[in-house]
Every structure is written in structure tokens, then in C-alpha cells.
Simulated scan of single mutants.
Amino acid sequence: MTAQEPAFSYTPVGRTAHRVTPPGFSPLFVRTLLDTGEAAFAAASRAVLEWRMHRAMGVRMDTDAERAAPGVRVTVSLGVGRWRVGGSCRVVWTAEEERRAGWAYGTLPGHPECGEEAFLVEYAEDGRVWLTVWAYSRPAVWWTRAAGPAVPVFQRLYAHRCGQVLRRLAREGDAP
């Protein structure tokens, strides 16, 4: 983080790497089977690390970086027209390992939620390839507080949609 970069809108930062939910946050855990084999793992990993999973879902990912890397700032927005909602985030951690690849971002001030969300592709010993979406969050603005229980439902649907889209991308391989 440079002197010009704002601090994250929450603490502690980085707990998604250990699948720990800090006190005062609501957890989210969704795991989706994508496919089997090394080729599926490689394709899914690239799609997650290069923002393609999100963009294929129709999520706007405004960033200058071609890939997720610690410190990269990204503005995420969902919806259409005047119903588009967005917020700034910064990548907290990345993983590019033999059997795991992914990243997490944390919210910055002004985001409608505060917390962290991780997208991790794992290549299991049995050959199956999984996407895990792990997050912890709490409302940061009046309208997400007012939405109450609808927000976690939307977050869960979003995480399931990530898995559906990444399954398709993993099966397509290197196709854009």
C-alpha cells in the first residue's frame, strides 16, 4: 500500500487465506465442483487470476492489471444502468501453486459492504477441480443494512453463479 492508497474498510485483513471469520462478520462458504484433470485446473486457474470468470458473469472489473496480484486495485460493479452498484477493492493475497490458484480482495472505503472475498481453485488428489468462494462481510452503508437478510442470499447466489460460469470456462479450456 502506498501513501496515496486508502486503508481497507475493515480489520483484520487477510483472514480468508485461513478461512477464518473475524467476530462481527457474516461468513460465506460455497464450494463447486468444476471438472476433473490438470487441463481443467489450468484453465480455471487462469480464468480466475485474469478476471475472466467475473467478466464472463457480466461483472465489471475496472483495473489496470492483467492479473490479480497483491496490492492491485479493482473496482467491482454489478447491475445495469442506474441500478449498477459498485465499490473499490484491493487484492489482499494471491495463490499460484501446483494445486491451488486464486486470490482475495478486501473492500475499501465507500464500498457498500466491508470485508473480504476469496476465489480459490483447487486440484484435489482424486483429480477433481473445485472452486471455493470464501468471504466474510457486514453492511457498510444504510441501504445494505436496510436490505437485511436479502444481502446474504444475494451473496450466496453470486457465489453459486461464479461456480457455474467457471465450470463452463474450465471445460472450454483456453477459449476466451
Score class of each variant (00 low, 15 high):
A44K: 07
A44S: 15
A44W: 08
A44C: 13
A44E: 12
S45I: 03
S45H: 05
S45M: 05
R46W: 11
R46E: 15
R46G: 04
R46Q: 14
R46P: 00
R46K: 14
R46D: 14
R46T: 13
A47R: 09
A47C: 13
A47S: 15
A47W: 06
A47K: 08
A47M: 12
A47I: 05
A47Q: 04
V48T: 15
V48L: 13
L49Q: 15
L49A: 12
E50M: 04
E50Q: 14
W51T: 00
W51A: 01
W51Y: 12
W51M: 03
W51F: 13
W51L: 06
R52F: 00
R52G: 07
R52N: 12
R52Y: 03
R52M: 06
M53Q: 15
M53N: 14
M53P: 01
H54G: 13
R55W: 00
R55K: 14
R55P: 08
R55F: 00
A56C: 05
A56T: 11
A56G: 06
A56I: 01
A56Q: 11
M57L: 10
M57Y: 03
M57N: 06
G58W: 07
G58D: 09
V59S: 01
R60N: 10
R60I: 04
R60A: 09
R60F: 01
M61W: 07
M61F: 02
M61R: 05
M61N: 04
M61A: 14
M61P: 04
D62W: 02
D62L: 10
D62K: 08
T63H: 11
T63K: 07
T63F: 03
T63W: 07
T63S: 12
D64P: 08
D64Y: 01
D64Q: 12
D64L: 06
A65D: 14
A65W: 07
E66A: 15
E66K: 09
E66L: 12
E66Q: 12
E66I: 00
E66Y: 00
R67Q: 09
R67S: 07
R67W: 11
R67G: 00
A69W: 03
A69E: 14
A69F: 02
P70I: 00
P70V: 00
P70W: 00
G71F: 11
G71V: 05
G71S: 06
G71P: 10
G71E: 11
G71R: 13
V72D: 06
V72G: 03
V72C: 08
R73S: 10
R73T: 05
R73W: 04
R73I: 00
R73A: 10
R73Q: 12
